[in-house]
Design a protein around this nucleic acid. Structure first.
Length: 473
RNA sequence: GGCGCCGUAGCCAAGUGGUAAGGCAGAGGUCUGCAAAACCUCCAUUCAGCGGUUCGAAUCCGCUCGGCGCCUCCA
């Protein structure tokens, strides 16, 4: 089975075929860096990271581009509204660019903790002002945009495919659009390509229309095509970005003569108590707070346990159940790795399970289904473990986990085993031997005391018929 | 008002025409000095409700009830 992806544009699953054989270009809408990253920000990066890993595993070379918005868009789309970065800068008594820098790193540090590999290119909107001006000029030249008093707007009425992505009828939008108080627009549906900077506005650049700053949507049209080509494979974003953001992106890019993205992937929202997390409503849980309570990779695993197009409602209870499940997988991995020798592997042993895993992933990244395969495999492996399996089997099992739990899902680093050093190894061996002697003399008072003391240090001892083993909690 | 989505066991969550995956929690059992882990068994005659289509529906259609998203900035 080959990879199929649900394309928002056609509203159906489609067989994935890259434009250039063997290569895949992906653009992901990144964050506006003006406040602490929250759980909602984690889903997209994790699913795109997983997609990239799966594509690479399938033999493609992938270029993933994720933008960062740092030019200070308004809190409101009308001419009213404040620059978000500027607002935050006042609050923290910093330069707007300091705010951008601070939250840029807060975001990418959090993503790194979540096991998200760094995108191949992270273009910043502020670093692509000339390109944005250039596309805006082009759109004016082609008759798709007009200038009004230092601002430039895209003329929606001139682009007949407007609404193609979100399935909206442009005519219905006229009445539905909120009436703005002060606007230079000819039509309420029109959106800004460039905005005139009011005197108090700090983030401003020179342009053919005077000092101003770019509109929100133009940066993505410009930066995606700059690094991936006029037509590229995959464009991803949160479901809430379909309209107006992605609709406007397509309109601008295509009006400027670019074919733009082929496959549109949209991940669903993460909710809190059934309601979408939103910064503006102060209804969210920051990743920083979450990481105090859960290993970031547990969060990653938890998000992978629901399909990316489903709403995922956050609760501590459900994350806790994910943590328990992951622990079971990891425990078995540690055990097969400990016993494996590193030479030949039985390649047939996991053929069916590998096939099942791949089928699930190829079916629009059905990670919950793929994880179910991992649990099936784990039960099978644990059963074999009690029957003294041979080296090739153990090696195959180890590779199975390292491929899927490691390379694809990226949660193997949650393995406490990796944190232990040789000295700790040696010390534990010593203690276990001491305790074993006590046990042989049936001096359970001593043996239990050793075990209890270790437990107090966060080390669990487990006795088996072949001796004791230990693990870090 | 327009566009769209969802409702599956105590909780989380796949499945979208062929007779209900998986995880967590819970119950019983095996093993064990005890414990832990692991394994085995059990845990939805049923998929919000009601009708319809079909040999067959959680899956398709209609209606009803409940929840949510977008149409402002948003992952």
């Amino acid at each position: 089975m080959a990879l199929q992806l649900y394309n928002s544009k056609t509203r159906q699953k489609e067989l994935f075929k890259p434009i250039t054989e063997g290569h895949v270009g992906i653009y992901k809408c990144g964050p506006t860096v003006y406040s602490d990253p929250h759980l909602g920000h984690a889903r997209g990066p994790i699913i795109m990271d997983t997609l990239k890993r799966w594509l690479e595993h399938s033999g493609y070379s992938v270029r993933l581009v994720e933008n960062v918005t740092d030019v200070g868009h308004l809190t409101d789309d009308g001419d009213a509204g404040e620059d978000k970065l500027q607002k935050r800068a006042k609050l923290e008594k910093l330069e707007p660019m300091e705010i951008a820098e601070k939250y840029f790193w807060a975001y990418f540090d959090a993503m790194a903790a979540l096991g998200v590999q760094r995108p191949d290119i992270i273009p910043k909107a502020s670093g692509h002002i000339p390109e944005q001006i250039e596309m805006t000029e082009e759109l004016i030249k082609l008759g798709y945009a007009y200038e009004r008093d230092g601002s430039v707007y895209f003329d929606v009425s001139a682009w007949e495919d407007y609404g193609e992505l979100s399935g909206r009828n442009p005519n219905d939008l006229v009445e539905g659009t909120r009436v703005e108080v002060r606007s230079d627009k000819d039509d309420p549906r029109d959106f800004a390509l460039w905005k005139r900077a009011e005197p108090e506005h700090i983030m401003r650049w020179n342009s053919p229309w005077g000092e101003g700053f770019p509109g929100w949507h133009i940066e993505c049209s410009v930066m995606s095509t700059k690094y991936l080509g006029d037509e590229f494979d995959i464009h991803g974003g949160g479901l809430d970005l379909i309209f107006p953001h992605h609709e406007c992106e397509i309109a601008q890019a295509r009006a400027a003569g670019k074919d733009f993205a082929r496959y549109w992937l949209h991940w669903n929202m993460i909710t809190l108590g059934g309601e979408k997390m939103a910064k503006s409503k102060n209804h969210f849980v920051t990743l920083e707070d979450l990481f105090k309570q859960f290993d970031p990779l547990v969060i990653r695993f938890h998000l992978l346990r629901s399909h990316y197009r489903s709403i995922s409602d956050f609760s501590e209870e459900s994350v806790q159940s994910s943590a328990q499940g992951l622990k079971r997988l990891l425990d078995t991995y540690q055990e097969v790795k400990r016993l494996s020798s590193g030479d030949a592997a039985d390649s047939d042993a996991f053929a069916a399970l590998r096939q099942a895993f791949g089928d699930a992933m190829d079916d629009d990244l059905n990670t919950p289904q793929a994880i179910a395969v991992l649990f099936d495999a784990t039960r099978e492996i644990n059963t074999r473990l009690s029957q003294k399996p041979d080296g090739p089997y153990l090696n195959a099992a180890t590779m199975f986990y390292e491929d899927y739990l490691g390379k694809i899902f990226g949660v193997l680093a949650a393995n406490p085993e990796t944190a232990k050093g040789d000295m700790l190894d040696g010390l534990l061996e010593l203690l276990i031997n001491q305790r074993q002697e006590a046990r042989l003399k049936r001096d359970f008072k001593t043996s239990d005391a050793i075990r209890d003391s270790l437990a107090g240090l966060g080390i669990t001892l487990e006795d088996t018929t072949e001796g004791s083993r230990w693990k870090l909690n």
